[in-house]
Every structure is written in C-alpha cells, then in structure tokens.
Design a protein around this nucleic acid. Sequence first.
DNA 1: GTAATATATTTGATATATCAATTATATTTG
DNA 2: CAAATATAATTGATATATCAAATATATTAC
Lengths: 146, 146
Amino acid sequence: MKLKLPSETVFHTIESTIKEYRKFAQQNISEAIPEMTIDQGLVLLFLNKFPEMTQKEIAELVFKDNASMTRMINTMVKKNFIKRSMNDSDRRRYKLEITTKGKEVLETLPPIIHHNRNSSLKGISKNELEQLQAILNKIRLNCQNK
Amino acid sequence: MKLKLPSETVFHTIESTIKEYRKFAQQNISEAIPEMTIDQGLVLLFLNKFPEMTQKEIAELVFKDNASMTRMINTMVKKNFIKRSMNDSDRRRYKLEITTKGKEVLETLPPIIHHNRNSSLKGISKNELEQLQAILNKIRLNCQNK
DNA sequence: GTAATATATTTGATATATCAATTATATTTG
DNA sequence: CAAATATAATTGATATATCAAATATATTAC
C-alpha cells in the first residue's frame, strides 16, 4: 500500500497552520497579559457577550469537553478572572461572573486579538477566505457524516 | 473595539475541521487497533520510513516538543510498539526499533489511514486542495515572520 | 587537551485532553 | 407523586502540551 507520508498531506498543513497561529497569538497575549492563555481569553469573550452561558455551552464553542472546561474554569477562578456563584433557577449549573480583574483583561485583549487576526491574514483576499472556509467545511462535513 | 466572535473567524473553522478529522480518524483506528493513537501511528510510519530518525526529528514532523515526544515514546515502549536501544555512534540519542507488534500495526494501519484521508476529502477537487494548501501556507508564513 | 558551548534527551511542574464513572439536581412518564 | 430518565458539572485515571531546568554526551575554540 503506497501511502503519502503524513507530512505531505493537507492535514499536516492544516495542523501546522493552526499551531503556528496559536503560538503567534499566544506570544502576543502573554506579552501583555501574563497568566492568560488564548483559550481562557476566548472564554472571557464569550462570557462577556453571553453572560448566561453555561460551562457546557462555552465548552462547545471552544472545542473542549466538559471535563476540560471544569478544570479550565477552576484555574480561571484560581487566577481571579472569574467567579462562580450559585444559579438558583437551576442548581445544577453555575453562574459565571467576570471579576474586576477579568474586566480589565477584556479591555486589554481585544486590540491584541484584532492585531493577531489581522496580521496573520495579511495579503489574503476576502474571496480566498471564503474559499478556505468553504473547502474546510466540506472536509468537516465529510468527517461528521460517517 | 468591535471584534468578531471567535466562533465567526476562519481560525475557528480551521480548528473545528482538524478536530473533527482527528476524531473521525481516531475512531476508525481504535476500532482496528486498540491502544493506538493517531500520533503514535504517525510516529511508527515515520520511523518505518526513516529508521535512523531521532526523537527530536520525529517530534518536529508531528508537531510535538521534545518533552512530549519523550513521554510519547515512553508509552509506546510500555505498550510494546517500539524498543529503545543504545546508539553507539552518538550516545546522547537512542536507536528506536519497531517491535514485531509494531510491525503488525504497520500492516493494519495504512489501509485505515488511506480510507480516513480519502473519505474526508471526498468531493474535493485537486484544484481546491491546492488552493487550500496555498492559502493556509500564507497564513502560516504570516505567523512565522513576526 | 581542556574549557566553553552545543545537542539530545529527560524530568518537574502545571495545564489541558479524553474517557468513564459519579453526584446533584431537573424533567418526564406512568 | 414516585420512579425512570435526562442534564450540568465534577472526579479519577491516563496521556499529552509546554516551559524551564537538569543530565549526559559531543563538538568547537583556545
């Protein structure tokens, strides 16, 4: 069976691209906000936009499972970015509140994220971006429907 | 600062695509070969093709750092897929040998990988694949040159 | 040839990924 | 309403990710 080496496939390219972007973005974030990871930043952004969101819902949006999300929230609480409090209308879930420190991060973060996205997409046309999304979505759907 | 939600960006699409592919591929591998992860499979493929490869070199090809690779090799040794032995020409590095069990995996794995790649890329033209690679490479380079 | 530097790998610490099992609370069904 | 089922979150176990520091061996420079 003749098989392309993994490093010659498009999957390798996808992996290396997203990893390179993550590294790049993380560096820029770390310079401005110590102790803050990309994913923790995303959680803050989502919570800020949708304050009622449950851990489970956030988890889906950032591609984590519930167990990972529990632990991520734990460390974010330990680092004082957010606070857990009881949700009386449904006591299985928590209310997640952004602390003052978390709100400061929400001031600092957006320009950095904006810069990260912009400079990593420099020289790429709107049309190219749409094609990229379309092709990736095809692959994603192929993987889901089996 | 108006910022797109993370879930509306191309980075989200890239992440979800590669994660969906990994989940899909891992399921198919697990059905045939228990205890074997995608990345461990890739390590075997590379080692088989380039028997002299060091842990460091393999690590680069599968996007791990050296520490992760050390631990991955440890578990692959524990599971008896490969064997470490001394390399007398350079005693800092190991010789990594594929065991009989590892060789059996190398018989079973390629058709599965072939199927994984093929079915996830179904309906995507050669031209689209090239575009995809080209655009991703642009992004990757943008991230590296900062 | 020895000291300084470089390289390959490991280890420790902490965070995250993943699966399966558990807990606590809600909802549904008979 | 009580029993069965569903849901949100946690926990345990194991693997991996990442950074920094440590080890052991090689190479280079003086």
